[in-house]
Every structure is written in C-alpha cells, then in structure tokens.
Write a protein that binds this DNA or RNA. Sequence first.
DNA 1: GATCGTCATGCTCAAATGTGCAGGTTGCTG
DNA 2: CAGCAACCTGCACATTTGAGCATGACGATC
Lengths: 330, 330
Amino acid sequence: MTISAARPRQGEPLSGETRLMLRAAQLYYRLNLTQDQVGERLGVSRFKVGRLLDRALRESAVRIEIVHPAARLVELEDALTHRFGLRGAVVVDVASTGSAPDDELLARERVAGAAAAHLASLRPTGAIGVSWGRTMLELAAHLRPGWTAATEIVQLNGATSRSARPTRAHEIVERFGATTGAAIRLMAAPAIVGSPELRDALEEDPSVGETLAAARAAATAVFSMGVLGPDSVHVASGYLNDADLAALEDSGAVGDVLGRFLSLNGRVALPSLDRRTIGLPLEELGAKALTVALAAGAGRGPIALAALRAGCVTVFVADETTAAWVLDHA
Amino acid sequence: MTISAARPRQGEPLSGETRLMLRAAQLYYRLNLTQDQVGERLGVSRFKVGRLLDRALRESAVRIEIVHPAARLVELEDALTHRFGLRGAVVVDVASTGSAPDDELLARERVAGAAAAHLASLRPTGAIGVSWGRTMLELAAHLRPGWTAATEIVQLNGATSRSARPTRAHEIVERFGATTGAAIRLMAAPAIVGSPELRDALEEDPSVGETLAAARAAATAVFSMGVLGPDSVHVASGYLNDADLAALEDSGAVGDVLGRFLSLNGRVALPSLDRRTIGLPLEELGAKALTVALAAGAGRGPIALAALRAGCVTVFVADETTAAWVLDHA
DNA sequence: GATCGTCATGCTCAAATGTGCAGGTTGCTG
DNA sequence: CAGCAACCTGCACATTTGAGCATGACGATC
C-alpha cells in the first residue's frame, strides 16, 4: 500500500447526509422531539431537519403503517363506498369456527349486529320499510329499544307462507315497531303467486295495496339478500317450485332482493317471475333516500354485487368474505 | 331463535369509534390529508380527529418504523455516544466477503474512509497529533487535499523500526501534512526501549523531547488501536520480545493505544513496560479537546472498550462488529 | 329522583410545521 | 478563470397541530 491520493470510494456506504437523516428520524419519530430540538442536537437548522424528514419519508426510510387487525375491514369499506358510490359501508370480520354451518350462523350474527349498531347511528326517522329472512330476523333481535324514533314500520314485500316453514316476517316488523315506538304495517300476501293477474289483483286490494303504498312512501328501507338454490328460503317457504327454480337458474339469476331475482349484472333475471312477485319494485327501492342492505354468509357475493349494480343500495353491510368477493369481481 | 331482546354481544368486533379511528388514520397517514380535511370527510371536528390519531398512536394501531438498512448503525452510534459520553461516534457496516483476511482489510478501508470524512467535517485546526499503524496508514491515504487547515502535524509516539517491517509512521505524518498544508514533526525514537532510564534519556533529548512537547500541546489527536498477539505490529516491528509478550498476556492486556498496553478495565496493564514506552502518556491524551479513535477489524472489541473506559476517546470510529461487541460488554 | 363524578366535546391560544423566496455556495464548462 | 447553473440554506409568513380549559351530557350512587 503506497500513499498516493484518496482512491475512489467503491460504494460510499453511508453519506453523512444519510446518517444525519436517520439520526433525525430516530430523534423525531422515536423520541418525539420537535424538529427544533432535533436541529439543536444535530447542529442544524429546523428547516434542514424538516427537509431531512421529508426525504426520509419520500425515500421510505421511515414507514408508517396501520397495523390494527381491523384496518383491512376499513379499507374494504372505503373501497366499496367509493366503487359503488355508497353513502357508507360496514364490513365485519368473522372468526372462522372451522365448521361451515357455524360460520354461516356467526356471519349472520355479526353482520346483523353491525347493521343494528350502524342503523342506530344513522337514526332514520319517519317510515322505515323492512324485508324478511334469517338475517333480518337476527337484525331485529339486535335492535336496542329506543335505537331511533320512527313513525311507521312497513313490510316491503309479501311473506305469508303456505308451507311448514314460516317466514316470521311479522316478528321482524313487530320488533322494529316495538323498539322504535312506531306503528306497524304488515303485508298480508305471499311473496310470489301463480300469475301476474293474481299479483295485480292482490296489490290492488286495499289489504295489500295500502301497505304497498306505505312502502313506496317510506324514505328508508332495510333488507337482506337471498341466495338461489334448493335451500333458499323461497323454496323452503314453498313460493318456488322446481320448474321456477330451473327457469331461474337458466336465466342466470344469482339471488333475490325483496323476492326479486337478479342476474349478476343487476337486472331482473326472469321478468315473467318478477311480474308474479308481490312487494316494492326494484326501481322504487333504488329511489329511496336511504337503503341499508345486508349480505351475510358464504355465497352472498354474487347477489350482493347484483344488488349494488342495480343501484338499490346506499349503505352496504357485509362480512369480510362477501365484501372481498364483491370487490374482486366488480 | 326467538326475538326477545338484544342479547349481550360476545365480543363487539369493532366499535364505531375504532372504525372511525382507523379511517382517520388511513386518511391522515396514507392520503396525507390535514386533520381538518379528515374531520370534514368523517363528519367530526378536527379536535376529535386529533384525539383519534392520538389514540391510534398510543394503542399502536399505527406503527412508525425506521426501515433504512443503515438505521442500525446510527442506533449503535447513538448508544456509544451516550454510553461513553462521547462527542460523536461513527459506525460503518462491512459487507462480509466470506474470507476473514479480506474482511479485515475491508473493515480497515471502511473505517479509515469514514474517519477521514468525519475528520473533514470536524475541521480541526492548530496542531494535530497522529499515531501510526495499518489503519492510520489507510486513513492517511483517504485524506483529501485541503480537508482542513492545520499548523502542525505531530507524531504522538515512537515508531522507528529496528526490524524488517517498517512502521511507515513518517508516511502517515507526511500525508497529513501534505493534505493540510501544515509543517510536520516526526518522533525519531522507537516505540518501546529496553529500560525506563533509556526512555527518560531519549525523551529528554531535544530530538525527541521537542516533538513530545508539541504532542502535548496539540489540541487534537488521531489514533488507532492495536491488538495484542503474535501478529501485533509491535511484535512484528521488533519492539516486544517473547518475554514481554508473555508478561503482557499475564497482566491481562488486551491491546495498545499509542504503544501503551491496556487491560479491559482501561488501566495500563503493565506499568513496568509502560515506563519503557516512548510517546504521549495516556493521561495527556485524555486531556485533549478532541481525540479521534479508530477501531477496525475482528478482535478490536476489547482494546476499544479499554480505550473508551480509559476516557481518552471523544470521537469513536469503528466497524459494526466492534461497535456491537463494545456495547454488549460495556 | 336529585346530585355528583366522569367523560367527551369544542374552544382559545401557543407551539410546531410546511412553503415560497432570496441570497449564497459549489462545481462544472467553455 | 470567468460565467453559469444547480443546489443548498435560512428566513418570513401561513398553515397545521397540540395543550389546557370551560361546558354539557351521561351514568352511577345514595
């Protein structure tokens, strides 16, 4: 080794500037000193400290991450809200139990609970329309007395069952009424009847027509989504026979909202069936100021996406799996 | 399932407040909105946003970490500075080559380079004392012309070799002089002589004495550390015979600073040998305003710790391994 | 059912931080 | 070595943020 001149450095491992930057970052972010204090310790002006910290952030020498386990849910909520132009979205996580049926139950419970809480925070007033189904039943059970004041609770679609499996729609409406102090209005009709003519006749009869008018007038609607399949409530309740089911499947239907079966693009899948369905039409649902839609459990993704595309949702409440599915396929 | 009343929630998965907190964190930290803007979007006051972010930080829902690869080095520097009351510390990383001798070389190169740069940033003036050794030679080679202005460069301890292996102390002093425009003052004496009497006689002779006086007067000193062992420069240069080496090892010496061998506690290990050593005594070194100590390469940990404990270091420059060893054993 | 304590809220004011700009320095080029 | 350009620095000023405090709502307690 002969002393000659400073040889070129192969890879300056750490310039003084970088060292300074990191020291500033440590003092500022770890010790929570002010930029002024950091500058004093490092012998530079506070302006330089600010610029150093700027650089550290830009070069991502410091990383700020949100580590809360629920952060993912909030991200999904924001993505849904933005993607579908919603007024809000609530996504809940469902700890897996290992058993699919239990997960289903748990998802319903969580989504219903979250929906109840969110509804309470929205404090809708006036008339509130409600649908029925297992998730709605669960939601009704979660409503806390006095969660809001409403003048009237209206059943949005037909439900009287002709089979062994009752829809329990009246329990739901009653619970909504009991917890808000509102009058209730039931819809004394089946969800789906045999012919369009019978549907029209029933809807014109005051017994159904008045409720339907009230449903139209309500500014708020709360409903859940149904899947299509042999275990669907509509099949279990006897509204759909095998031929209907087959026709629906052929038409690309993925599930229903207020008894209206939709295909993935958000359109009514089978108009002939839709004309036999008693309750608020989809367009009227979409015209409301506030509609809260619940989707809980595996397989709800497609109908949730369909409903969102149909534009009849302003607040969407779902479990994480469903929310992720919707965003993946949107 | 019977509707009765809201059942107690087993584990509210996500309170609205937490949801709000996370959303605020996302908007604030990811989108860089102001607290005011976040508040507007979330429909809360900016004060609440501030408190929400506070909570997020306290509950460590957001984590701020410094991820730069060199952050560790800066941490070591701060720890050393604080632990030993230094004016500063510089720690460099040494990419392992896989071969121990190459690592040694590389470590010296990096430490010397960093020391040269740091010295330049300190811009010491007046008289500067320097020691010799392989690391000092490397440091000298890294000095850039005009790195500072000095009046005089003084050799701090004896070095003239009586063996085949030259110490090249004069090259070091000359390079320091050439790059600063300073006059130079060499010490025409061996590092260690045979008897205290001869040492005293030499130090009183003007040829050595005047340099020693200048060494005492210098406000700044730059030196490196030597390890004890058969491959030590002092053995190679012929200053120490086997008996000396054995006595040193018995006394617990771990290495030398300016030819003064220290034990781990920072004291002179073998006073009888110290009295035969020509150069600036340790106490005088510790009294200087600025002393820059270099420690590079495996096995320098113990002598580095000893020197730090001896209180003769104000700026410490070392490789990562040595720095970590020192902090581990301090 | 009245009272007290606790807690969250929003305010004012001070501290901290970011921004655009003018002056100065460095290093490059002809 | 002059001229130029890019860059860095520090400053005044506007914006943003934090701290302490008064107020009001809610729930608990006696």
